[in-house]
Design a protein around this nucleic acid. Structure first.
Length: 362
DNA sequence: GTATGCTTTCGGC
DNA sequence: TTACGGCCGAAAGCATAC
């Protein structure tokens, strides 16, 4: 049976939550900012509302740069309140979950859903269901969302991206080719600036051109698995299932250092609160880990990591400061530049008292 | 050679 | 003129075992 897959994306999420809480800022450029604390304005824009975007400001942009662009435009800068957005997100996801067959949350503000059953595989019924989901989100939390429907995850994701904010785009199986083929490859889910550039060097600019691209050439450039994905995704024919996500596969914390350094002990000192925070998180969720990594962002913003895997799951991160120090030391001494930011990551996670996930197939 | 597991990098939001 | 976070998941790259 053909599938009906949806993707829901909350519009300019963090900034919209702030607008709902304080409607008087609506209409002005609103920036939700991640301040790093190094200098007054250092940090980046997390989310910008549409008035800000129309003035050329968007997420990932340095705050100082955004401020310059918005001089005289009465911008509203708000520091990010992650817990608040987390709470709103949970409520929205529950509203959606109640109305679909399967929900797969892929971020704080987006999710895939499968409504093959509840729409009886009928795209016109699916459209009505998607419209009712949008209404329910608006009534529950005052937020607009954009929804896309299609025959696969790739099509649904691109459909939700096609019209926003407050969009509803339905791409039936019959219209899939016409929808996808003229779009630039950069719009394809899974294609970022680097892949797009490599494709452009092959004279592949649109998804239609990607559909016809030589597979051997794609394999040579990207490897077999990515090549197969690109080929299928271009046709909107990926067969990825919508599946509820279990727990996280990794947890991390990263900070910006007060000043650039190669001194591992300095980095460790500044990281201690983040290590404690992650430790508390692990303990409260009864999570053990097997792999510990130190992450560094260098002065040129390039990234570097060093990691270590233990033989058995480790429960107590705060007892690993010696290992973290060693990893930071390896990292700092092998890095071509000083560290600007430093972080830790744990992966290979398991829940305490649940060793089955590691042993049941051995 | 193939399978498997670990390390590092990439890319999305 | 420049300006620059904090997460997450996944895949490539590499090493090792058989």
């Amino acid at each position: 049976m053909a599938r009906v897959i949806g993707h829901v994306d909350l519009d300019y999420f963090y900034a919209q939550v702030e607008e709902v809480e304080n409607p008087s800022i609506k209409g002005k450029p609103v920036l939700v900012c991640v301040f790093s604390g190094r200098t007054e304005d250092s940090g980046v824009v997390g989310t910008a509302n549409y008035p800000a975007r129309e003035l050329g400001v968007g997420s990932g942009m340095p705050i100082a740069f955004a401020k310059k662009r918005l001089e005289g435009k009465n911008p509203v800068l708000i520091p990010m309140h992650h817990q608040k957005y987390e709470a709103v997100s949970e409520k929205v996801m529950q509203v959606v979950r109640e109305r679909v067959d399967v929900l797969e949350q892929t971020g704080i503000d987006e999710a895939f859903f499968d409504i093959t059953e509840s729409s009886a595989d009928d795209f016109s019924r699916a459209r009505n269901l998607a419209a009712s989901i949008k209404t329910a989100i608006l009534e529950s939390q005052g937020l607009t969302a954009s929804i896309g429907l299609g025959q696969s995850k790739v099509v649904a994701k691109m459909a939700s991206d096609f019209s926003k904010p407050n969009g509803l785009t339905v791409v039936t199986p019959e219209s899939t080719y016409d929808f996808l083929s003229p779009l630039p490859v950069i719009r394809l889910y899974g294609v970022g600036p680097k892949t797009a550039k490599a494709l452009e060097d092959l004279n592949v600019r649109t998804i239609g051109e990607l559909m016809k691209a030589d597979i051997a050439e794609l394999e040579r450039l990207f490897g077999a698995k990515t090549a197969a994905y690109l080929h299928n995704a271009a046709a909107g024919a990926d067969d990825e299932e919508v599946a509820e996500k279990q727990g996280a596969t990794q947890l991390s914390r990263i900070i910006t250092l007060k000043s650039d350094t190669r001194d591992a002990d300095q980095a460790l000192t500044e990281l201690l609160p983040a290590i404690d925070d992650l430790h508390r998180r692990l303990v409260s969720k009864s999570i053990s880990f097997r792999t510990l990594s130190a992450m560094g962002i260098l002065t040129d913003l390039s990234a570097k990591t060093k990691s270590k895997t233990f033989d058995r799951p480790v429960e107590n991160l705060s007892e690993c400061k010696g290992e973290i120090r060693e990893l930071l030391q390896e990292l700092a001494s092998s890095a071509p530049k000083e560290l600007r930011r430093a972080g830790i990551r744990v992966s290979g996670l398991s829940e305490k008292g649940d060793q089955t996930s590691l042993t049941q197939f051995q």
